[in-house]
Amino acid sequence: MIKERTKEKLISIGLVSPTVLAIGIFVYGFIGWTIKLSFSDWNTFAKLLKGKFKFVGLSNYIKLLFQDPRFPSDLWNTLFFTILFLLGCVTLGIILALLLDRGLKGSIIFQNIYLFPMAVAFVVTGTAWRWIFAPGISAYPQGINLLFSKLGLDALRWRWFVSIEHIGPFNLALIPVVIAATWQLSGYTMAMCLAGLRGIPSQLIEAAQVDGASGWQVFWGVKFPLLRPIILSAMIILGHISLKIFDLVFSMTGSGPNLAVDVPALYMFETTFERLRYARGAAIAIIMLIMVSFIIIPYLISSMKREAKK
């Protein structure tokens, strides 16, 4: 009996170890390498190729954070984008899920329609929404502006992602990008919330109704508290997507006028592969990693604690 168990243990270790090894090398190994690179002076191709490591301390980080005309605005853009994107996806996701949960005829069709954008790559979304939001010039509007002018709603015409208006450090040109991203991923929060709603025992809702709760009270008092953990995990998944966003912005707008829609990942790409400042590009990557870990690590700790309790 004991022998059997040891054998099982050995098998499971054997099955897991290739993955652990691969992740160890290709994820953690390369994170370590990137950290090392970010402390070097490898900011030209020749220095990278010669490979002679020279430690320059935090100078790549200092340059980015305090002397760079571009990076600080990238951070503001990321913050603004993340807040709007999470807000949009979660509200829209909950509303759609509540509507679908009423079990009306044909709701399965809508459920799929809302979910389909998730199957599309961000590059495709970006290209399509670039066509929609390209403003044209006043004499020749394009995309959504053309629609507005045909409908006689000229007041709604706007310069969308080439707008340079801003409220404090927040660039309004990000709004079209947030709309595109929300269009793509609110189906995901909908699916999560729908699963959550379906999992709520009907007795709970009936009990609340018997007690005389209105529809609204049922939602706030019963459904929403039960959905909270689900919404939290959806926000964490979406949050780390939004902090690392690259492909959508790259294909839809580029960095935009006045760097209004620039994000750190875009800057990292250009710094590393166009300007050949490998060390500075690595520093951007590490700053992004730190931002993502602010979201992921508390989540991992809390879920580990939960596991331990079980």
């Binding site: 670039r130 939001f133 390209a134 403003p135 044209g136 010039i137 006043s138 394009q142 310069r159 969308w160 992602f161 080439v162 707008t253 580029g254 935009g256 006028p257």
Partner: peptide, 8 residues
């Protein structure tokens, strides 16, 4: 220049 140049 055209105002929408960043989109072209």
């Amino acid at each position: 220049a055209n105002v929408d140049h960043a989109a072209l």
